[in-house]
């Protein structure tokens, strides 16, 4: 159902201004060395020429701290006040990269798997995603090896690709995208003959995910988990910048008789993540925790949900203080010859 239009460069402001009349817009904003999605009021605030934001767009739908409910103890009972999800405003995520947009598919499936998480879902339902294709990439990008690509459409409602002329090819991908188009139909013009592909960054394929999954099935006892994770510091930077990582902690905070229960980002790289109260830890070493991270994304999730928990954005590698490079490590795992065939020790 993809419909393509031409959006003149001057029409971008018109589209933005139309949307901001009724919606909150979150877009990449540059502050120092860091580009992250912030609420913006004008197109001028939006960063230009960023390859990738430091924190992914997931932070808008899956908040790093989310109040699940308030409670108040009174008269020997407890009153629970749930967040009013009707008050979540209509949102636009503007300037998303295709890899981030695709990762919303994996967040969606985790948060709807058997038990529907209405907090995530309500925010998702009220969001429209306007992505911009990538016309540049850096050496950390590997989306084409992770089932995405610089012009990948999955997950976006509208995908804009900047053409050589400075105008944009606008692909309307969903009903939400159509609704936006219908808000300001005049700016969506007949497309030129210029090809989308010619305006996308070139990102070489370094491995294929199906092959990786197959290899991981045999890789449980590989030496590489140890050698690759030797320099891992055990922080959560990779997980927190990742657009697909969705693991969380649940924490209570109280102030006298009242308080909140909230959900906050967590990481499988932390040593306490799986530690039992008894002190026993099923994943005692950093190597086991590194294996979990890779297995979860490239073996377990494909089995459970049908797709990987990685879209090749490369953020974890950029953010890693010890230069763990996921693209390089995955390629090494594919070519690994150290793993004994027996899957479980």
């Amino acid at each position: 159902m993809i419909e393509s239009y031409l959006l003149q460069s001057s029409s971008l402001t018109k589209l933005f201004n139309k949307l901001i009349e009724t919606r909150h817009i979150y877009a990449p904003v540059k502050k120092g060395m860091v580009t992250s999605f912030n609420r913006v009021e004008s197109l001028e605030e939006v960063a230009k020429d960023y390859i990738q934001t430091t924190i992914s767009a997931k932070s808008i739908l899956f908040l790093r701290n989310e109040i699940l409910f308030h409670y108040k103890q009174e008269n020997g009972d407890v009153k629970i006040m749930e967040p009013d999800l009707q008050r979540i405003p209509e949102l636009v995520i503007w300037g998303c990269r295709p890899c981030d947009a695709k990762s919303f598919k994996s967040l969606h499936s985790v948060f709807n798997w058997d038990y529907k998480d209405i907090i995530y879902s309500s925010r998702e339902a009220r969001s429209a995603i306007i992505s911009f294709s990538c016309n540049q990439a850096d050496e950390y990008c590997f989306c084409t090896s992770a089932g995405s690509g610089p012009g990948h459409t999955e997950g976006s409602d509208i995908l804009l690709t900047k053409l050589k002329s400075g105008d944009y090819l606008a692909e309307i991908l969903t009903e939400k995208g159509q609704l936006i188009r219908d808000m300001i139909p005049a700016i969506f013009e007949t497309p030129s003959s210029e090809s989308k592909e010619d305006n996308l960054a070139r990102i070489p394929i370094v491995f294929d995910t199906a092959g990786l999954k197959q290899k991981l099935e045999q890789a449980w006892n590989s030496e590489l988990w140890i050698t690759q994770s030797m320099r891992c510091l055990g922080c959560g930077a990779c997980a927190f910048v990742c657009p697909s990582c969705s693991c969380f902690d649940i924490q209570d905070e109280k102030h006298g008789k009242e308080g909140v229960r909230s959900r906050c980002w967590d990481s499988c790289g932390f040593s306490l993540f799986t530690r039992h109260t008894s002190g026993h830890n099923p994943r005692e070493t950093q190597a086991e925790r590194w294996r979990q991270r890779i297995m979860h994304k490239f073996s377990y999730l494909p089995d459970q949900q049908g797709f990987t928990g990685c879209t090749g954005c490369g953020r974890c590698s950029r953010a890693c203080p010890a230069d763990m490079n996921i693209r390089e490590h995955l390629a090494a795992l594919i070519n690994d010859s150290t793993s004994p065939e027996n899957r479980v020790a």
Binding site: L233, C235, W265, S267, F270, P321
Partner: peptide, 12 residues
């Protein structure tokens, strides 16, 4: 307020 508590500072 920007800190998301990844504890990279501590780990490093």
């Amino acid at each position: 307020s920007a800190c998301f508590k990844c504890y990279a500072c501590r780990a490093a």
